[in-house]
Amino acid sequence: MDLIVYLAGEIHTSWREELKRKAVERELPLSFVGPQENHDLSDDIGENILGTQPNNVIKDDAASSVNNLRTQVLMQKSDVVIALFGEKYKQWNTAMDASAAITLNKPLILIRPDSLVHPLKELSNRANITVETVDQALEVLAYIYE
């Protein structure tokens, strides 16, 4: 049984590659999807499709529409969502994706460091499980197959 895992979270570090590599090493039957990781493409996709927009607000709105559609399609096709909250970057998109997973009744694994326990307490309470590391999240997925 293969599972599709949506990897929500910041796109500036290599946590996704680390998790994917470790899943392959463990021979777990997982496929991965997630947000657009090319930041420039994500920001420009609205104009790429609709043409130059009159200002940055409308440009951002056009890009958001396309990105939200992409996220909705991929998340609905996923079996489980992992949402990683790191300490360095703003996490608005991660919070939105985690909330969408909860709304869609998708199993949610939340990864957050100890320093974010308090700010994420309500979201953590709604997740199926909260862990602190990518390795722990992978252990949860591996347990499904035991």
Rank of each mutant, 00 (worst) to 15 (best):
V5F: 12
Y6R: 12
L7D: 04
L7M: 15
L7H: 04
A8F: 05
A8K: 03
A8D: 07
G9V: 08
G9M: 11
G9D: 09
G9W: 10
E10Q: 09
I11T: 14
T13W: 07
W15F: 13
W15Q: 09
R16K: 15
R16Y: 03
E18T: 14
E18K: 13
E18V: 12
E18W: 00
L19K: 08
L19A: 01
L19R: 07
L19M: 14
K20S: 12
K20N: 02
R21Q: 15
R21D: 03
R21M: 09
K22Y: 02
K22Q: 14
K22G: 02
A23G: 02
V24S: 08
E25W: 04
E25R: 07
E25I: 00
R26Q: 13
R26H: 06
R26N: 04
R26I: 11
E27C: 01
E27Y: 04
E27T: 04
E27S: 15
L28G: 00
L28Y: 04
L28A: 04
P29E: 10
P29A: 14
P29L: 14
P29D: 08
L30D: 06
L30P: 01
L30K: 06
L30W: 07
L30F: 04
L30S: 03
F32R: 07
V33H: 00
V33C: 11
V33Q: 05
G34V: 06
G34W: 10
P35V: 13
P35Q: 10
P35I: 06
P35W: 10
E37R: 13
N38W: 09
N38P: 01
H39F: 13
H39S: 08
L41R: 10
L41K: 15
L41C: 10
L41Y: 10
S42V: 00
S42Q: 14
S42E: 13
D43L: 11
D43G: 08
D44T: 06
D44A: 13
I45D: 00
E47V: 00
N48Q: 08
I49S: 07
L50I: 09
L50E: 03
L50Y: 12
L50M: 11
L50K: 12
G51I: 06
G51S: 02
T52G: 01
Q53K: 11
P54H: 02
P54K: 06
N56M: 04
N56V: 08
N56A: 05
V57H: 06
V57D: 08
I58Q: 09
K59Y: 01
K59S: 15
D60Y: 05
D60W: 05
D60P: 00
D60M: 12
D60E: 13
D61L: 14
A62G: 11
A62N: 10
A63T: 05
A63F: 00
A63V: 05
S64P: 00
V66K: 02
N67S: 15
N68L: 15
L69Q: 13
T71N: 12
Q72R: 15
Q72D: 03
Q72A: 15
V73W: 12
L74Y: 10
L74K: 10
M75W: 03
M75Y: 03
M75F: 03
Q76C: 11
K77D: 15
K77L: 12
S78K: 03
S78E: 03
V80E: 06
I82P: 14
A83G: 07
L84D: 01
F85H: 15
F85D: 10
G86L: 08
G86C: 09
G86N: 15
E87S: 11
E87H: 05
E87C: 09
K88F: 05
Y89N: 11
Y89I: 06
K90Q: 10
